[in-house]
Amino acid sequence: MNIIVVGQRHGESRTYRLTTPARTLLFGCLVALPFAMGAAGFWLADWLADEDFSLEPMAAEAWENDLSLQRQELEQIRIQTDQELQALTVKLAELQSRLMRLDALGERLVDVANLEAEEFDFSMAPALGGPGSIGEAYEAPEISDVLNDLADRIGHREQQLEVLDDLMSARRLDEDTFVTGRPIKKGWMSSRYGRRADPFTGQLAWHAGVDFAGKLGSDIVAVASGVVTWAGDRYGYGRLVEINHGNGYKTRYAHCLELNVKVGDIVRKGDVIAAMGSSGRSTGPHVHFEVFKNGRTVDPSAYIHRTLR
C-alpha cells in the first residue's frame, strides 16, 4: 500500500510505502477510535451527572441558610415595630393628657378673666383654613417627628398659659383685696368721718368712720376679700364684723342686726356678711363703717370711689 503526500511548493510529491504490520496497526487504530470516543463521552456524561447531584444538596443548604437569616431579620423588624408602636401609643396618651390639662387651664382663665365662654370654648376644635398651593408636592413627615413637634408646641403653650394664669391670679387677688366701694347695696351716707356732735351727749366728739343709713335687715357687704378676725358683740359697736384684707388694711362693720360670718371665715369681695341693724350705741338702723390702714383709722370716703391702678 502506497501513501502519496503532495507538497505546497512547486507541486512536489512524495510516496511512502506501508508495510504489512504498519497497515495492520493503522487499520486497528481506525476501527478502535470510534469506540474510544464513545467510551470517553459516556464517562464524561456520568461524571457531570455525579457533580450535579453532589451540588444540589449544597445549593439547598445555602437557600435554607438564607431563608433562616431572612426570618430572623423579619422577626427583629417586627419586634422593633411593636416597640415603636408602644412608644408612640404612650407618647400619644401623654399628649392627650397634656391637652386635657390645657383645656382645663383655658376654661379656668376664661372664668377668671370674665371672658365670653362661647367665644373661648376649649371643648371645640379651633377653626382653621387658608388658600392651598396648587401644584406643590406634599411630602408627609414621619409620625414621630409630628408627635415631637406637637409635644414642643404644647410645652410652649403650657408655659405661656401658666405664666398668664399666675399674672391673672395675682391681678385678681390684688383686685379682690383692694379696699374700695360701699358696704351696703342700698342706703345713703348719714354721717361723715371726723369731728361731729355726739348724738347722745351733743358734745363735740371724734367719729372714726362713716355711717350709712338704710332699711332694717338690708344687706351689709364686704368691700374687699379677706379673713374674718371678729364676729360678735363689742362695746359701743354692738354686733361687729371685722375683716383683715392684708397689706395693712382692715375694715369694720358695726351695729348689725345679725351676722352671717364667724371668725376664721374667708369672704370674697361683695359677699353679704351681715344684716343692717341698730345694736350697740345707735339711734337707728345703719352700719358704722371703718377703714384701718397700718393700725390707724383713715377716712373711708377716700376708698368708696377708689380705683386700682
Rank of each mutant, 00 (worst) to 15 (best):
A117V: 14
T229Y: 14
L26D: 03
S278Q: 14
L95K: 04
V6W: 05
T24Q: 11
W43M: 08
K215H: 04
L259F: 13
L55I: 07
A125L: 08
R172I: 06
T24M: 06
L18Q: 00
L216D: 14
G7Q: 08
A224W: 11
R172H: 05
G284I: 06
W230N: 01
D219A: 10
K185L: 11
N247T: 01
A254L: 06
D145G: 14
M1H: 03
K250V: 11
N65Y: 06
R153I: 02
V267P: 01
L173E: 08
V146G: 11
V227A: 12
V291R: 04
V163W: 07
H156Q: 02
R157I: 05
G41F: 03
V228S: 09
L164M: 10
A45N: 13
L240V: 07
I220W: 15
I220F: 13
L308S: 00
L164D: 05
G295T: 01
L109A: 12
V5F: 09
V241A: 03
A60Q: 12
W206Y: 15
F35Y: 10
T89M: 06
T180H: 11
T89R: 14
Q203G: 01
S190D: 03
K250A: 06
I4F: 04
E290D: 10
P131N: 09
R98F: 02
Y235K: 14
A274Q: 03
A125P: 08
R239A: 02
A60D: 05
A87K: 12
P300L: 02
I4K: 15
H156Y: 00
M168Y: 12
L109D: 14
G155C: 11
R196Q: 07
A45L: 13
I79E: 02
G236I: 15
L25H: 07
P131G: 04
C29V: 05
A39P: 03
Q86T: 12
A151H: 07
V223L: 11
L48K: 09
D50H: 10
D52P: 01
